[in-house]
Write a protein that binds this DNA or RNA. Structure first.
Lengths: 174, 174
DNA sequence: GCTAGCATGTAAACGGTTACATGATTAG
DNA sequence: CTAATCATGTAACCGTTTACATGCTAGC
């Protein structure tokens, strides 16, 4: 997730770590900060892998800014990750939304639609809430109000996403 | 999350690892399996910490079932975690829903409502989607359809959850 | 005879959290 | 003068993923 977000933001323009940090935090929706201990090692890994280069900006204040720029391989890697999302990229909400934030960078509408279709398939697969003795428990059957709430919220979320996905896939269809 | 789920399910009845695994998988909504490499070490940690005991069931097939039972400390630990959720337990969707699944075990409606109130506060805090030049970008301003979708889905989700939380807090109020 | 499901575990690698460390600039 | 913000980094610890390892039973 972090790596994908870094690649995504740097695909748009070179940035230094601190700026990257604030953009990634904002991306998550309700702001939960990216820790330095996650960000800087991730940057270092990408640099070691040849996906980005850094150039120190000899400005005045603080620690000098390290402006990060994606290499050709870095740009390819973003597109590859968007094109061929792993199972968890599709399954995990945060991961999928991160991919979504950068999906416009995929050059073809067909490829974009294919990613959305994979997510839609996953969402439409029957959810397995509270299996008891082999048979699925429906929302109405659950007597615990909190589990009822879980199911209710999950339903609403799922519906909103399904509608958006269907609509958008249709709009992308050539 | 895993630890909380283990404590939660075992609070209800003794189970063996494999059964725990399938219940935890179902809990997540759209079934994504818990890996053995996460589950069994987690069980071992809880055992070492004195929160559960295991008793081998000398049944026929396969590897013998290890029936897991929470100790007094284990039961206390679940209640403690539900009562005093950490910041990430409130912030993180999965974590919060895991707590929700077991919230009924808290003996007092006041305590239950307090947890829901903390989540509601968090949800109501202004979300930070795509800050550009210091000013927040609204859904309508975003021209990228995928980011628009993100915002749209996040809104729908947030609304559904807010409504349920408000209603349920009111219903719990004595 | 083979695959799927039941059942438990270990080990290496990876990535994230938390805490520590440093230091400059700007606003109250 | 003090707190917040800017700016980068390291190190210990922790939990998860992925892959490996074993072996039984039931149904096709």
């Amino acid at each position: 997730m972090l790596t994908l977000a870094i690649l995504g933001f740097l695909y748009e323009e070179p940035l230094h770590g601190y700026e990257l940090k604030s953009r990634i935090s904002a991306l998550t929706g309700h702001v939960k900060p990216v820790s330095d201990g996650a960000l800087y090692p991730a940057i270092a890994r990408l640099e070691k892998g040849g996906l980005l280069v850094r150039r120190a900006e000899s400005g005045a204040g603080a620690a000098p800014r390290q402006v990060l720029t994606l290499t050709g391989e870095g740009r390819d890697e973003l597109l590859r990750r968007l094109r061929e999302p792993s199972q968890v990229d599709i399954t995990d909400r945060n991961r999928f939304f991160t991919a979504l934030a950068f999906l416009r960078h995929l050059p073809s509408a067909d490829e974009q639609a294919a990613v959305l279709r994979r997510r839609l398939e996953f969402i439409e697969a029957p959810a397995g809430f509270f299996v008891r003795d082999g048979s699925r428990v429906r929302a109405g059957d659950v007597d615990d109000p909190f589990r009822k709430g879980m199911v209710e919220i999950a339903r609403a979320t799922s519906r909103a996403e399904r509608e958006w996905l269907s609509r958008t896939i249709a709009e992308l269809g050539s």
